[in-house]
Simulated assay, not measured.
Amino acid sequence: MATPDEPISRFKKSMQDVYGPIDDLTAEKAKTWDPPSSPGAGGHRGRYLWTDAFGVVNLITLYKETSDPSCLELAKSLVRTVHDVLGRTRDGTARLPGATDSAPLKGGLRIGKLDEGGRDGDGQYHHYLTLWMFALNRLSVAAGDRGYNDLAVQLAAAIHPHFVHRSSSGRLSLVWKISMDMRLALVPSEGHLDGATGYVIYGLLQRTAAHFDSSSPRVLEAELKDYSEIMGREGGRGLTASTDSLDLGMGLWMCHLARGEPWADRLGAESMYMALKALGRDRGPPSRRLAFREFGLCLGARCYGAEGLVAQGVDELVRFWEEYEDELDGDLRPISLVMYAAAIMPGAFRKEYLPLTK
């Protein structure tokens, strides 16, 4: 990753290290491109939902930066492959329960964990699914095709009743992980910012649906009401800046999407202060660190608007990992590479990069 020096060249190299020699494909060939399953994005049958969500958004960034239509076609092909692999059972013989050929995301999407069961086995994560919804939304806007946002809405509506529950006392709760068939809660605790992220992403999908068809009923209205209620518990005091690099960075990214809302501005300011502290501390040798989590911090800070010492700290952290590329080995290499690319060139992760315009 250390050379060549231009950010877009380093960006392309990282993407090709994960997805193969995509730079040589024409737009026509990109339409039938099959992403590699080995090494691919890691995960089961070469697909991992978080990594491929970054892959889709990064390809849209390349499309906007280069005006190369093959990048947009590659993003579409990657979406198709993810739905064909992670939208099906692990043996690939059937769609996930609830899904059909005409509604492929009504059964949700698997994480893509290598193991089927166990503590860290396959299933469905709320925060992975909302990130995939964002990727579909960005593809919809970039391509001018409402179909991808419609798929994101389909996914959002399908998973919601399986993650969000109301107790006998009337309190709404949000679980962190459910089974592949969406029937069981595997991790009943609540992700730190899952409720707020659901509120932000579902709102983005709703606005985009209205952009494509202003006469249609407002989608996801009931779901957004639930997320608003979850966020409002205890006066919103649960929305605090994280000390974890990845959570802190994705929180900053989420807040920049909701800039102007009081809760997002407050949390964003607190998180930037925490980012400054995190970037200034000694993190130890690379062997004791996880690069992808630190790239998440860099991405979020840049999207929110890093300046001064924060911007300097982000630059230094990226350069650190460029010097230790050899540490990005094993199962985490694909996720580290796509997040590195997004950290050096956030592109389509930024709200203003793909504005909704009439």
Rank of each mutant, 00 (worst) to 15 (best):
F54C: 06
S102Y: 05
G268C: 05
P355E: 13
S216C: 10
G191H: 11
G118W: 08
L354R: 14
R47V: 07
P7E: 06
L248D: 03
Y353Q: 04
L337Y: 13
R45N: 13
D150N: 07
G238D: 12
D244P: 03
Y324A: 07
G107L: 05
H160C: 03
R350D: 08
A258Y: 05
G191C: 10
M15V: 09
I22C: 04
R302C: 05
V175G: 00
G284D: 01
G268A: 07
Y304H: 11
A152K: 10
L139T: 03
R110C: 10
L78T: 08
S70A: 15
T93K: 07
S271N: 12
T89L: 11
E316Q: 15
R47K: 11
A27R: 14
A158W: 12
N58Q: 09
Q312H: 13
I201G: 04
G198N: 06
R171W: 03
D331Y: 11
D52R: 03
A258Q: 12
P7W: 05
L220C: 05
H44P: 00
K277A: 15
K351I: 10
V18C: 02
G251L: 04
R218S: 14
Y19T: 02
G203A: 05
L186G: 00
A278N: 11
A278M: 08
M1D: 10
R88A: 07
R138N: 12
H165F: 08
C298T: 02
S179W: 15
E323T: 13
H211T: 10
M231A: 11
L59E: 04
N137T: 02
G300C: 04
M254R: 06
A269H: 13
Y202G: 03
I60H: 09
V85R: 08
Y273A: 10
L49P: 07
G40S: 01
G46A: 01
R293I: 08
S228T: 15
Y125F: 15
Y125S: 02
I230Q: 03
T197L: 14
L114G: 00
M345R: 14
A135P: 06
A264C: 04
E294T: 06
V310H: 09
A278L: 11
Y227G: 03
A210I: 05
L62M: 15
T208I: 14
A196V: 06
S38P: 00
A94P: 02
V79C: 06
M182L: 06
T208H: 06
G43N: 06
V79D: 12
H160N: 01
G203H: 12
A222G: 02
Q16E: 14
L129T: 15
S189N: 02
Y227N: 05
M345Q: 13
L248C: 04
P7R: 03
A275S: 11
G280Q: 05
K351Y: 11
C71A: 13
L328H: 12
G112V: 08
G118Y: 09
L224M: 14
A94Q: 12
A301P: 02
D17S: 12
D68Q: 11
G108F: 09
V164R: 09
G268N: 07
G235P: 08
A196W: 15
L239F: 10
V318A: 02
L184Y: 15
T208A: 13
R10K: 14
D329L: 03
